[in-house]
């Protein structure tokens, strides 16, 4: 995964914002509506799934990802899923917004829906698998040097680096295939601990970071 969503270690963002203990979940009224519509869109309306939603987010351009904040990117990912499932025509949302603002715009007709031919085998992401985990707690492993393309979720900053398995987590559906409706392919997930100076060099602050990695993202170190 190397795209706008993979922010780890990127620079130029400035200082972090100080926490406001009284912050409410939504800053603007439209964020509430965008939140709910996206939650309903990713499953029932578009026939897609949570991993497809994350993959839609990762495919947004920089402006669509950043300019309207978190719920802005949710809205844009929902629109992308709706267009890809042919629930909405490309441009339909903008055309309606312009008409609402009084512009003389022709709205595109609604297409024939083409939801993905896909059904989850169970709710959620956890699955039972019969094979034992390939790695055990305490084992040294290495993250693949080249992150899986597409919807895979190997953060770029750990790619190619060695670490140690801290915890073996239950099997989860594999986003690489689940996000594109090519099967759940559940795999064990491993909490792998990396040393900061292995990732960022000898001048880095000293700490460790754990990352959850699917079995196929790892090899023996």
């Amino acid at each position: 995964m190397t795209n706008i969503a993979d922010m780890s270690g990127t620079s130029g963002w400035g200082p972090v914002s100080p926490p406001d203990p009284d912050e409410r979940p939504f800053a603007e009224p439209w964020e509430r509506r965008a939140f709910a519509m996206t939650a309903f869109t990713m499953g029932r309306i578009s026939g897609q799934n949570l991993d497809a939603f994350r993959y839609a987010l990762a495919r947004l351009d920089r402006s669509a990802y950043l300019d309207d904040g978190y719920y802005g990117r949710w809205l844009n990912a929902a629109e992308l899923m709706l267009i890809e499932s042919a629930i909405l025509a490309p441009g339909a949302v903008d055309a309606r917004a312009r008409r609402n603002a009084g512009e003389d715009v022709v709205e595109p007709p609604a297409p024939e829906p083409a939801r993905p031919d896909y059904a989850a085998t169970a709710p959620g992401s956890l699955r039972r698998i019969d094979t034992p985990p390939a790695f055990v707690e305490g084992e040294r492993v290495r993250a693949l040097a080249v992150p899986p393309p597409g919807a895979g979720k190997l953060p770029g900053y750990v790619a190619g680096h060695p670490g140690v398995v801290d915890l073996v987590q239950p099997a989860h559906v594999l986003p690489d295939t689940h996000a594109v409706f090519r099967g759940e392919n559940p795999q064990y997930v491993y909490t792998v601990r990396f040393a900061s100076r292995e990732l960022w060099g000898a001048a880095s602050e000293e700490f460790s970071v754990t990352v959850e990695l699917f079995e196929s993202y790892l090899e023996k170190a």
């Binding site: 965008a34 719920y71 629109e79 917004a97 312009r98």
Partner: peptide, 20 residues
């Protein structure tokens, strides 16, 4: 187009179709 207006437009489109 501001996100607030695009959100409103999307809700109209989905509501008219009976999807939300």
């Amino acid at each position: 187009i501001p996100a607030s207006l695009r959100t409103e437009a999307l809700e109209q489109l989905l509501t008219e179709r009976g999807l939300v």
